[in-house]
Design a protein around this nucleic acid. Structure first.
Length: 545
RNA sequence: GCUCUCGUAGCUCAAAUGGAUAGAGCAACAGACUUCUAAUCUGUAGGUUGUAGGUUCGAGUCCUACCGAGAGCGCCA
């Protein structure tokens, strides 16, 4: 339960006496020095004939509450409350229990589709959004009590693969000795060739069709490309701590499609239009199920994926962490889920903005190619290596920068990627929160006696209140699918801790034993909380720095 | 042309689903290390929240119009 509910209950109980059933909301506030929380809802009943009586009744209640140290009810109707030490202590103890609780599955199953990796294409800076947001949300949902399943959903079928095969044949490239670096060069070349050379394009179209018909030779070519590319992508993702429960792809679901499509035809849920098969549900633009040559498209494989997931996972909730430019695609897909009766589960597209360069265009390097994820990672390693640290710690720090610098920005904004800001080691950064966490860890390690909480004084209360805000931001991140709320919170929590650290010594001669153990207890709870936040964000705390 | 998203400090971004005085970081300037890690902390300066209206006790947030930016609109994914 939200600890502030104790306060709002007091107000609600009084209102009920006057037959008012409004739900009261309390929020943390920095209105002034004497205000920890504010309640705004009284304004709504200001016209009530008993208003003055209600106010007096609430005042009386507050005076008798040991949760409230002081309060005021101003004329405009705001209630400003300073919380008592008793309240803070109790809440902090509850918070600690809550945070140390193991994840228990008590809600439904949610499947996360994120990562956006495509066979034959290198992971580039644009991929960090789906990877970070997806991983973070999966962690958050897990903590919230859901069973989570993560699936990268490889783009490993259709025209891109056909283009690669066509190009390999066209240029007589030896498929047996193909490397992933070769593939990364081949795809852009094949793609541009298909745009200028019609003959090449129709060749690829034909290969795509042959793949769908399970032509043995094509499948064997496909398999070789698939093996080389997925091995490379998986290993990079694993190095960067992006691990999935499943590495399934479009290719895993196509076998489910022929029967399904035949069934749709029988039920006349689809019809031929301009030679192509479209859904018969009058969507505008129409939902294209197969091309006029019968081969599958984006929607087709996504439908197949739902069939697969229903059969193998039966999730209650589907979350797709995919670029917001594909909004219409998901709108169509979700309409088809109902129209074709694919599933009764909840479907949600969690869109995000593009990562742009300083001119506002999607991120590229100077020569016009994509800035690869591995390059960014190496650049970070180089930058952080300047301080003589163990290489394992440097790589963990680099990975935390990769996550944090991306996750501080609201999901939907198209943000401008700036390497200097991204790798910033002071201010609001991964390095800052890692440093704070290390400081706390070091303090805890120095103590050999069990800490214990006592009266929360003025020196500790700001930090304590900041710690208590965890619930709010966690819930906010969960409800809006926005990890940045927790990333912002990580900064303000650490900032509050660093202030505390600077101004209040613990292992100092003038600090008595009680106060020492009391402060250590708060530091411990800070540490447990920030560790939890790290976990939510997909960041691993370093041991030292 | 239609649809969607966005416009906040010099720059990059927040802002509790409508609350009081719009906050951070960077950059600038000024301070704090004989004291648990200064990758830290403190202070100064910086704003008519694109413009004009509207809704109400109250608007960065909701509505309308306009200006500006970006994205998407049938056989790519």
């Amino acid at each position: 339960m939200n600890e502030l509910k104790k306060i709002t209950n007091l107000v609600e109980e009084e209102l009920i006496k006057f037959e008012i059933n409004n739900e009261i909301d309390a929020r943390y506030s920095n209105f002034n020095e004497d205000t920890d929380i504010q309640i705004n809802d009284l304004i709504k009943i200001k016209k009530d004939k008993n208003f003055n009586e209600i106010v007096n009744s609430i005042k009386e209640k507050f005076r008798n509450s040991n949760f409230i140290e002081s309060f005021e009810i101003v004329d405009s109707g705001f209630i400003n409350i300073k919380l008592s030490s008793t309240f803070l202590e109790e809440s902090l103890q509850n918070h600690k229990k809550n945070i140390l609780k193991k994840n228990v599955v008590e809600k439904g199953t949610v499947i996360f589709d994120y990562g956006g990796a495509n066979i034959g294409k290198s992971l580039h800076v644009g991929h960090i959004r789906t990877l970070n947001i997806g991983r973070s949300l999966a962690n958050i949902y897990k903590m919230a009590g859901y069973k989570t399943i993560t699936d990268i959903h490889f783009g490993d079928w259709g025209m891109p693969l056909a283009l690669i095969i066509a190009y390999i044949e066209d240029k007589n490239i030896d498929i047996e000795t193909l490397s992933s670096d070769d593939l990364e060069e081949i795809y852009p070349n094949a793609s541009s060739l298909s745009k200028e050379n019609e003959e090449f394009y129709s060749k690829a179209l034909n290969i795509s069709k042959e793949m769908n018909l399970k032509n043995e030779y094509r499948i064997s070519q496909w398999q070789k490309i698939y093996d080389v590319s997925t091995k490379n992508i998986k290993s990079l993702l694993s190095d960067l701590d992006f691990n999935f429960d499943y590495y399934l792809g479009e290719s895993d679901v196509i076998s489910l499609l022929p029967d399904f499509i035949n069934n749709l035809k029988k039920k006349t849920l689809v019809k031929i239009d301009d030679g192509a098969l479209i859904a018969n549900d009058n969507q505008d633009p129409p939902a294209l199920i197969t091309k006029s040559d019968g081969s599958y498209m984006y929607l087709t494989t996504d439908i197949g994926t739902i069939l697969y997931r229903e059969k193998n996972f039966s999730p209650d909730y589907y979350i797709y962490v995919v670029d917001q430019r594909q909004k219409n695609h998901f709108k169509q897909l979700f309409k088809l889920v109902d129209y074709f009766k694919l599933s009764k589960s909840k479907f949600e597209h969690v869109p995000f903005g593009t990562v742009n360069d300083e001119k506002g265009k999607p991120m590229k390097t100077r020569d016009g190619k994509n800035y690869k994820l591995i390059e960014l990672y190496n650049d970070l390693i180089n930058k952080l290596s300047e301080n003589n640290l163990d290489s394992a710690i440097v790589s963990t720090l680099a990975k935390s920068v990769l996550a944090y610098s991306d996750l501080v920005t609201k999901r939907t904004s198209n943000y401008i990627f700036d390497i200097d800001k991204f790798t910033n080691v002071s201010g609001k950064s991964a390095i800052f929160i890692q440093y704070s966490q290390v400081r706390a860890k070091k303090l805890i390690a120095q103590s050999h006696v069990e800490s214990r909480l006592s009266v929360i004084g003025n020196d500790e209360r700001k930090l304590v209140i900041e710690i208590l805000k965890f619930n709010h931001f966690f819930k906010m991140a969960l409800e809006t699918n926005e990890p940045h709320h927790l990333a912002e919170y990580a900064y303000s929590l650490c900032h509050e801790f660093n202030k505390f650290y600077t101004n209040n010594k613990i292992f100092s001669e003038d600090i008595n034993e009680d106060l020492k153990l009391h402060r250590l207890c708060i530091v411990e709870i800070f540490y447990q909380t920030i560790t939890k936040v790290f976990n939510c964000l997909g960041i691993e705390p370093v041991s030292e720095m």
